[in-house]
Nucleic acid binder design. Structure first.
Lengths: 275, 275
DNA sequence: TCAAATATAGAAAATTCATTCCAAATAATG
DNA sequence: CATTATTTGGAATGAATTTTCTATATTTGA
């Protein structure tokens, strides 16, 4: 396994500490500065660092060489990697996962990888959804006299689940599924007091966009479950909930989406009960 | 109070999202890159970013100006401030989550509970499904000349997903959904060389049992996804896969089921590819 | 105290960088 | 189809950055 950013950083700190007592005064001064200001070391230019540490830029270069690097630039990479490492992006984690799943192709290995990916997706969901967003979405759903649920193609299973579950709450719910080619007819039922709950993932189906636009023009409330902020639906929506299910070979597991859907439904049920 | 690095960053993200739809193609491309790679945006030089995003450096400068900055450098400060500000350890992240859970509204607490429950469901799935069961299920699916997918009521979303995904593999697939009251007619198409993939959770719908029985009598292969061994379908099935999604107030999240479904589909795709 | 060695400061040089500008390409308009 | 407006690619520019170099200062050891 390749060395992580944090490890390299800690190793460098150790090295600096070890050498500190045998450094010349100026180098020692820089060593202390470096250990005390790792953020600055990561971001500032040598000139700025020199200014902050009250030394000459050339001293910084000598320092970098003294601890074993070719120059300041390569030393700086270590301080940067540390910050990167602290926050591995969701994409990076999933990419790492995908790397592994290429090795074992057996179905069981797949199940393992996908379930780990789904777990990551759920964790991501917890971390990124903001309480007030959820709150708002539930309010909009509770406020609509009829809830319309939209989801086509890959989003359809989520929409179907939402419609089923909301229906069990004894609320008026309508699944816009485009059955019999009647998408527009279904959409045209949406009125101003209603709420449209739209589920849409990339690539965003044109028909779905059309339905949302129509609902928007009719002044219906719109709650949108989607996979990213760069989404043609987002700007028409009154509430946007972001989910990022791991995608493998073009398929999304929808595990996190389903979890969010369940949350919305149960929260809606409680809200309605309380009234 | 002075604006934190994180706030500024989130504000910038919002702005990018808001403007995305009116950007030119190249600017849109950069917008997506920026949101997907905030780390790179913080550290890399414009030339490197341009290379990564596959655009010209000048386009990056145009982008920075389009979102309201004087140039790339000032925009980059925002991405850097985010990392400066925000270097939580794992423990801190957990604590922050608890904090939000406590002070946050009820729906968010629900989301937390459900996502934890779903995570446990996934772990359970990993632990209980045996490799040879999966192998067998995939073989049966690969062997059938037509795959029929059955799932009614709460199981319907899983079935819909399976049908959609198997269809994308260019295989003949047929979703038995009982549309137009034609459940029996749909079921009567199943022949001996076909495979029925039945999804059924408690309380097992009578109609579903009927369809499986009919398929069984016609000597079709039967793969069953269900929630326990005490299931009327199990004894007719050639392969049984057991999933236990967490249940809350009578609702199942289906997260684990979706994960298993994805696994079956991708494994099937690979199996067919290899032939 | 004096020479030798080492460390430092600061200027200079060589890169690299962000930005600008203009021409080519593309899309919109009449 | 011709014209106009946008958008895009890529070279040019000038500022900034890292690094090297050298004269000066400081320390070391006799």
């Amino acid at each position: 396994m390749t060395k992580s950013g944090l490890e390299a950083y800690e190793q460098l700190c150790d090295e600096i500490s070890r050498l500190h007592h045998e450094f010349s005064p100026r180098l020692g001064q820089i060593a202390e500065f470096a250990l005390a200001n790792p953020n600055a070391m990561a971001f500032e230019t040598v000139a700025q660092l020199a200014d902050l540490a009250d030394v000459q830029p050339s001293s910084f270069v000598r320092f970098a060489k003294a601890v074993g690097y070719e120059g300041c630039s390569s030393m700086q990479q270590v301080f940067r990697a540390r910050l990167m490492d602290h926050q591995p992006s969701y994409d990076e984690r999933i990419r790492a996962l995908r790397q592994r799943d290429l090795e074992g192709a057996a179905p069981f290995a797949l199940l393992n990888d996908f379930s780990v990916a789904a777990t990551e997706g759920l964790a991501h969901l917890r971390e990124t959804v903001r309480p007030e967003q959820l709150e708002r979405a539930v309010s909009l759903l509770a406020g609509g006299s009829i809830v319309y649920v939209l989801g086509l193609r890959r989003s359809f299973p989520v929409a179907a689940y939402l419609a089923y579950a909301i229906g069990k709450l004894q609320r008026s719910v309508n699944l816009i599924d485009g059955i019999g080619g009647m998408l527009e007819e279904q959409a045209s039922c949406i009125k101003a007091r209603d709420t449209l709950l739209a589920v849409s993932f990339r690539p965003y189906a044109d028909e779905a966009i059309g339905v949302v636009r129509e609902a928007h023009e009719r002044n219906a409330s719109i709650v949108c479950i989607t996979d990213g902020p760069l989404n043609p639906l987002a700007r028409m929506a009154d509430s946007v909930l972001e989910v990022r299910d791991a995608e493998v070979e073009g398929f999304r597991a929808l595990s996190a989406s389903m979890c969010l859907a369940l949350t919305l439904v149960v929260a809606l049920g409680r809200r309605v009960e309380d009234l």
